[in-house]
Design a binder for these strands. Structure first.
Lengths: 238, 238
DNA sequence: CGAGCTATTGAGTAGTCTCAACAATTGTGG
DNA sequence: CCACAATTGTTGAGACTACTCAATAGCTCG
């Protein structure tokens, strides 16, 4: 196990405050109430999400650390499918279904709530339903991004995109710690580990990133990185 | 215009009867009520979905025909992104957002409902919320399938997969009419139109399908087609 | 320090794309 | 209904990207 006792909480100390999460827009009183009802789990690196009551949690919020979701392939193997960083939410739809499996990356704290409890809560705090839709909206948006990446992008663009996304989702720190090996990055982006490695080197040679260590990435030229990702079009294109 | 007296059951009888849709499990009385409240639109080929009240519809049900969703690419172009066949539902999350655009393929009838109305309806028929989750669940499952296709599959597997899906979603007719050109199939599957064409020919030469006309596909060997798609064979267990 | 990973690098290849010509199908006006 | 134009689909040759296989280098941790 690549324990990596690195503190993810620190890396993501500034979770996307702007991202609509489950508690968005609720009065302080309601939030306090919810925090009392939701269950808090603490997981160490690699721990699977406990499925206490025979079911995956209906919704969840990652407070610290990160979760990874591995899905089963038709061939019987398993592959890394998605990540949930601190400050992001688990929707009832994305994870676990289809034989997916959630586990912690680094020390992780999360709040969960099962379906029955959620329904009770939501009946007294209707806004919860709206926020739940927002959470799922985010998931679909993500899925769309990955579809674009996988369907239309070159290797360079894929790697640049992943770096950009991770960087942004961890709060654009000066130095980014990759939570994944080259092989895992490849699994997510539909590339081989060798190709991922080569692309990292190319970005390094081009002066876009520095790689003090294989998993430490310093983004030197955000502008160019985004440009290489093929995503953010400068308005005067076309 | 209200959705009066056409036979809802008929429209969805053929295609995926098992697929959980918005009205699943509701008493006849409630369904009749809903059909009165939902708006019915009739579109001709190519018509965009009217966005009456400045907003895309919150939920929709395709009764006849099909809808296509085109999204804007970062480069400013647009590309075919998803299809919704008769009997399937539009969730509030998938379509339209991100500058997507919905339009009809062939003569199409659909029922729509905006957010405010849906909330009112759902407060008197709580099961609607549950069904809505089911609809979104389907969308996420679809997104996952496409991610697998785009990320890990060869050209042959991609084309075989699309054929299998379309075939199943149209009720496994003896002869399937493709709603898309080779170029559009390529847009969805991340291939060029030439490669799509070549794969069709290969499947034909292998005796898996017949192509009486470019867009008419007779599936001769479902078994092999599914095998070539690289997906696990359908479980007839249940 | 060395074992066991993980990552890098290289050489050769397979599969898909690009570009280009051609064929088939569909649509249109006489 | 035919002739023709426009669109869509097919086929081929060559180029190029990313893959495979294989060897080497660099971390991490006992």
């Amino acid at each position: 196990m690549n324990a990596m006792n690195h503190n993810w909480a620190e890396a993501s100390a500034r979770p996307n405050a702007a991202r609509p999460t489950l508690f968005r827009g609720l009065p302080r009183k309601d939030i306090r109430h919810l925090l009392n009802i939701f269950e808090e789990d603490r997981l160490a690196d690699g721990d699977p999400l406990p499925r206490g009551r025979a079911e995956p949690p209906f919704v969840g919020l990652v407070l610290d650390g990160a979760l990874r979701e591995d899905v089963r392939t038709p061939q019987g193997g398993t592959r890394l499918f998605a990540l949930t960083f601190a400050g992001e939410a688990l929707s009832p739809l994305g994870p676990c279904h289809k034989g997916g499996r959630l586990s912690a990356m680094g020390d992780t704290r999360l709040l969960t709530c099962d379906r029955a409890v959620f329904d009770v809560l939501a009946s007294s705090i209707p806004r919860l339903y709206m926020n739940l839709l927002g959470v799922m909206q985010d998931q679909i948006t993500d899925a769309y991004r990955w579809q674009t990446l996988l369907g239309r992008k070159t290797a360079t663009e894929r790697v640049a995109s992943m770096l950009t996304w991770f960087h942004a989702r961890q709060g654009t720190p000066a130095e980014l710690t990759l939570p994944l090996s080259r092989a895992e990055l490849g699994e997510m982006s539909g590339l081989t580990l060798e190709t991922v490695s080569r692309q990292f080197r190319n970005l390094q040679k081009a002066g876009v990133i520095a790689l003090p260590r294989p998993r430490q990435v310093r983004v030197l030229d955000t502008e160019t990185l985004i440009h290489l990702s093929g995503d953010a079009p400068l308005e005067h294109a076309a």
